[in-house]
């Protein structure tokens, strides 16, 4: 099946042209170090945004799970936020922040596209991540909170020491899933003039009239993303085994040792 497909492709009339403009070995080796160098920008983008997203997403999720009429305004605010940022196309938000805000020329507001890239990715992904957290919080049985409160723990302490540690542990695999998406979406910010891996690739392509640099970039993403996907799968499987077989207890961390930031 695969062989047949390969044969069809290789014997196609456009193959020699394709080979020359997409699979140029010399160009590949020339492009790779440059691409990798700029990929570092994406890695920084990813790492900084990720930390901010984990924190902001958790804040949103906690706001949305506050009970009672007193917290209604906060709940509403968080809900509207999540709805809006999940509805907007990511590229649009990146454009508006990356071009729009610097164009206002407000004193003291940074013009660096890197800053606006981080802000845009954080705003966008926090909305998704807060939903993941919220599902985790809701999956912890209310009797757990009741038990915590009955011991005299405050609502906040119950959340901090009893509900959140259980919730976060359960949602680590879906969180990792979102971060695979984030990793790839870092290339979107090339559109606001940040020279990162995708922009660099475009430059190389234009200079050589050859698409091979894209192959190098694709490879870099595969090398980084696939292990993350494997890790996610492994964690999911382990979580399932733990629920079914009751194993792996020894590897559970101590309470308080692992905050949200440490969960990643």
């Amino acid at each position: 099946m695969f062989g047949t497909l390969a044969f069809v492709v290789v014997s196609s009339p456009g193959w020699p042209r394709f080979q020359a403009s997409f699979l140029n070995a010399e160009l590949f080796w020339e492009a790779l170090p440059k691409v990798v160098a700029k990929f570092w920008v994406n890695v920084q983008l990813f790492l900084i945004s990720e930390v901010l997203i984990l924190v902001f997403g958790l804040v949103l999720a906690v706001l949305r799970s506050l009970p009672g009429p007193v917290f209604f305004p906060l709940r509403l605010l968080a809900t509207v936020y999540v709805d809006v940022f999940r509805a907007l196309p990511g590229l649009l938000v990146i454009f508006m922040l990356g071009f729009g805000v610097p164009a206002l020329r407000i004193e003291g507001v940074p013009k660096d596209p890197f800053v606006w890239a981080v802000v845009a990715l954080t705003l966008l992904y926090s909305a998704y991540v807060s939903e993941v957290y919220r599902a985790g919080i809701e999956s912890v049985h209310p009797s757990q909170e009741a038990a915590a409160r009955s011991l005299g723990l405050s609502r906040w302490q119950g959340l901090r020491y009893v509900v959140l540690p259980q919730a976060v542990r359960r949602v680590i695999p879906p969180l990792l899933n979102d971060f695979i998406g984030l990793q790839k979406d870092t290339v979107l910010v090339s559109t606001i003039g940040l020279v990162e891996v995708f922009r660099q690739t475009q430059v190389l392509q234009a200079a050589n009239f050859n698409f091979t640099p894209y192959l190098a970039t694709a490879l870099v993403f595969l090398v980084v993303t696939i292990p993350l996907a494997r890790l996610t799968d492994w964690l999911l499987r382990r979580e399932k085994e733990r629920r079914v077989g009751g194993v792996m207890r020894a590897s559970l961390p101590q309470p308080g040792e692992r905050g949200v930031g440490g969960a990643m």
């Binding site: 757990q144 009893v162 101590q254």
Partner: peptide, 8 residues
């Protein structure tokens, strides 16, 4: 139902 904290 006991309601012990399972993560501790």
């Amino acid at each position: 139902a006991f309601n012990l904290f399972p993560h501790m």
